[in-house]
Amino acid sequence: MDYVAEALNGSQLAGARLIRLLEEGDPAGVEALKKLYPHTGNAFILGLTGPPGAGKSTLTDRIIAEFRSRDLKVGVVAIDPSSPFSGGAILGDRVRMQRHATDPGVFVRSMATRGHLGGLSRTTGEAVLVLDAMGYDVILIETVGVGQDEVEVVDLAHTTAVVALPGMGDDIQAMKAGILEIGDLFIVNKADKPGADDVVKQLTVMLEMRAGSADGWQPRVLKTVAVKGEGIADTVNAFLEHRAHLERTGALAERVAERELRFFRELVKEMAADLIFGSFQGSGAYADLVERLKARQVDPYSAAETLLAGFSCRAT
């Protein structure tokens, strides 16, 4: 099966298998991605993040339905944590979204963090590219339940929504350093519970205190009751308004360009490390250096400098 051609044709089987190859670090996945890349860049990428139990999956389910009612195809990448002990994971985000499983315009892929910090898995970005190439109009990234500092989703998403809930007043305070800075939208879910208006007020006040974003967007605070489908149309409208704002101001092109540059630099770092360590494979001088490092006879800084000096000698 030619996964690339099939995926571009919309085959979910081919797309899913490509994502799997990428997730397992198979070089065939990267080769396929190179061919898919010219077909990417069309999707509207949304991030949904917030603490565990805030209702992210239920919101995702409702948001999928709303986008579908507007005739847009939706891809979802939902992240759940891997066990630090067994390496296994229970990926349960689908439970809330299974009614879309028979809709050919929806593709839901669950991913485990596999030890990656930051709220995503290492290959979330690659999965998003595959879905983008397959022609999904909107791609929703649902992060793991986050605390304060897992803000990696902003690197990938064009629009990021932070989900909060009533009864976590103190946590909202705690969120201000990291998470409060990344939201283009704030969704107070479970808004039928007591205290919802207090959270809305707290968030609004804090956002007013925050220095405005460079592109002039004023983040909005919305109320939803995801289980009842309340506030969902407004939420989706707000997503689209932010998207329109990004396009109008040129901020979208800027965000995308920054992301490409960052990704490129990360790749160069990774590939350079592989290249350097690979070139010293079986080298006596390298083994000697490692032994001295382990015995604390040389500090890690000097050891790294020695290694790189040796590498550049070899390269020239």
């Binding site: 891997s82 066990s83 002990f85 067994s86 390496g87 296994g88 994971a89 229970i90 990926l91 349960g92 689908r94 439970v95 299974q98 499983a101 669950s110 485990a112």
Partner: peptide, 10 residues
Amino acid sequence: QESGYEVIYT
């Protein structure tokens, strides 16, 4: 999960 598998629960 505890045996190291990734389990997708529907």
